[in-house]
């Protein structure tokens, strides 16, 4: 069963055509279910009823449940949807850009930079929105430094990967420095907890600051998705297909880093999604970004909502999401990899 549905190319085409439709549906259904799950359980029917009430049909639920659904859970689910989509899309295009299956959204050091910014913000006891802004700023600073360090007359893309790894470890060291100087009673736990990633601080204001970056990045990448196919090719090949490869690379890096910095600034370092989801999608949809990128975006969104829902409902205390993405994701990934042909380059 598994072999016939994952392995054969001919089947794969029909299979993925059917999935095109489900792709859009999956995150919506998952989000709808997730709205009802939590310490106060609301059945999907009641959720639908509440949505109807907001559209002016039928009666609303009790005020307490309404507040839980729309003021607490919805922003959080929206955040999860967009962060999942953004990180997956960024990981997906980075893997192609660097022709490297190990590339993640953090490859150019953006997540470490943003993490450092957030740690610094917490150290300076800024309000949450302030932390988010400092974090966003440092994410972008980190990428700019990486690009400066990596650029030279010899145009090799791997220099940027190396420069990114260096910048990543530089900012990791700076994070350690901030932790070292932080007050151990309040600040250190806050920084540590923040770095592990969690979505519980989601509110409409922080979404308003962060979402435009993610949405903008996704839209641009989506529009360019056919040309992104040329990124893994050699420079001459890409150019001979009439594509200005350096412009394309720069746009891709800009979009991917803006999305990643924005994600990290809102909910800390959510690891794994950017590596895992694109690979899952490559196994099913192949390497053509015409399908791969939309698939990564939708599956990434659904995946993070699922993981976040688990993180907030598994136990009374909230689980850091990075731990769960790895614990759920890694075994799932290994199983899938063994049953399909996996990434080939």
């Amino acid at each position: 069963m598994k072999a016939s549905f994952l392995g054969k190319q001919n089947h794969k085409q029909d299979f993925s055509r059917k999935w095109d439709f489900f792709l859009v549906l999956i995150p919506l259904v998952v989000a709808l279910l997730a709205l009802g799950i939590g310490r106060i359980n609301v059945s999907p029917l009641e959720v639908l009823q509440s949505i109807g009430a907001h559209l002016g049909l039928g009666d609303a639920l009790s005020p307490q449940i309404e507040v839980v659904l729309w003021n607490i859970r919805l922003p959080r689910i929206l955040l999860a949807l967009f962060v999942g989509a953004g990180l997956s899309a960024a990981g997906c295009v980075f893997q192609s850009l660097f022709s490297n299956p190990l590339a993640t959204p953090d490859t150019l050091g953006v997540a470490s930079g943003a993490g450092f910014g957030a740690a610094l913000g917490i150290l300076l006891e800024l309000p949450f929105l302030g932390v988010q802004m400092v974090s966003l700023l440092f994410g972008i600073v980190a990428v700019m430094l990486t690009v400066l360090a990596g650029s030279s007359r010899q145009q090799g893309i791997n220099r940027f990967v190396l420069a990114g790894i260096m910048m990543g470890s530089l900012f990791s060291a700076l994070i350690s420095l901030v932790k070292f100087t932080a007050d151990t009673e309040n600040q250190l736990p806050a920084i540590t907890y923040w770095l592990m990633g969690n979505l519980d601080s989601a509110n409409y204001y922080s979404l308003l600051l962060g979402l435009p970056f993610i949405l903008g990045g996704i839209i641009v990448l989506w529009l360019l998705r056919w040309r992104i196919n040329l990124l893994p090719l050699s420079e001459d090949e890409a150019r001979s297909n009439g594509v200005n490869i350096w412009n394309l690379r720069i746009i891709t890096v800009l979009c991917a880093t803006a999305m990643t910095a924005s994600c990290v600034s809102m909910c800390g370092q959510v690891g794994w999604v950017g590596l895992l989801v694109p690979h899952l999608c490559r196994m099913k949809w192949g390497n053509n970004h015409l399908k791969l990128l939309p698939a990564s975006i939708f599956i990434g969104a659904a995946f993070l909502v699922m993981v976040d829902t688990a993180a907030r409902s598994i136990s009374a205390a909230e689980f850091p999401i990075s731990i769960l993405t790895a614990i759920i994701g890694a075994p799932f990934f290994i199983v899938l990899m063994r049953h399909t042909e996996g990434w080939k380059q």
Partner: peptide, 10 residues
């Protein structure tokens, strides 16, 4: 050298 694992048609 490097080329991505595309379907031939793509």
């Amino acid at each position: 050298g490097a080329f991505s694992d595309f379907i031939v048609e793509d």
